[in-house]
Simulated scan of single mutants.
Amino acid sequence: MGLTWHNPNTQVLAEGPELTIQPPTLRHSGPTDSTHRFRLDDAQTQQLIASYQAGSTVYQLADQFDIERRTVSAILHRHEVPMRRRGLTDNQIDDAKRLYQQGWSLARIGNHMNVTADTVRARLLERDVIMRDTQGRPRTETSTAAGESR
């Protein structure tokens, strides 16, 4: 039906250019069996710890070292590094409330304040702010309850 397979990695369209399909690339080189896990060496681990203590977030470090954020947290816990509480101060919650009432989305406020949209939502709900639906309308009691029960 218009496609002819010449090999598993190349498609040729009957009346068009050849398309090459690249196999997926591995995140880390080396053995690919399920027992192999990528590990940071001692110097990388010390750099990760120092960067965290200097103010980097676990998300930034995960990107920097190309590992999961849970791995960053595990390394910090294993080395007994005190974790910072991610959250919003009372003044930040007041600002978030003001921005939300001006029409900013939870995601935009979260990005602005370097926290997740869920964190912003939780703090605003604690302040009895009425959440908007996806069309920007205030949620009714039934839609708020339905949204929280998911």
Rank of each mutant, 00 (worst) to 15 (best):
D118H: 14
Q101C: 07
V81L: 02
I109M: 01
M83K: 06
R86Q: 12
L124M: 04
H112P: 05
T89W: 05
E80G: 09
G110V: 02
T119G: 11
R121D: 08
G87S: 07
Q102W: 10
R98D: 14
A74F: 10
R127F: 02
R78Y: 11
L88F: 10
M83S: 11
L124D: 03
I109W: 06
V115H: 01
L125I: 06
D128I: 00
Q101G: 09
I93P: 00
D95T: 14
D128H: 13
G87T: 03
R86G: 07
D128F: 11
T119L: 12
M113A: 10
R108W: 08
R78A: 14
L76H: 00
L88T: 09
H77F: 13
H79N: 07
Y100T: 00
S73I: 04
E80Y: 12
M83T: 04
H112M: 12
V115F: 02
N91A: 15
R127V: 02
T89P: 02
T119P: 03
D118P: 02
W104G: 05
P82C: 05
R127Q: 08
L76A: 04
R86V: 06
V81E: 03
A117H: 07
V81M: 02
A117C: 01
G87F: 06
G110C: 03
L88S: 10
A107D: 12
Q102R: 09
V72Q: 00
A117P: 01
D95C: 10
E126T: 07
H112T: 13
E80A: 13
I93T: 08
Q102D: 15
E126A: 11
V81I: 01
R86T: 08
D95W: 14
R127A: 09
R78N: 07
E80S: 12
L88E: 13
T116L: 01
L99A: 15
I75F: 05
L124T: 01
A122T: 14
D94E: 13
L124W: 00
Q102V: 05
W104P: 02
R108L: 07
L124G: 00
K97C: 13
L124Y: 00
N91I: 11
A107Y: 11
R98K: 11
R108E: 14
H79Q: 07
R85H: 13
R78Q: 08
V72Y: 00
T89V: 00
R86H: 14
D128N: 15
A117L: 00
D90S: 14
S105G: 06
V81K: 01
S73K: 05
H79G: 06
L76P: 01
A107L: 11
D94F: 14
D94P: 03
Q92E: 15
I75W: 02
R108Y: 14
A107C: 08
L125G: 04
R108H: 10
N91F: 15
G87K: 05
T119E: 15
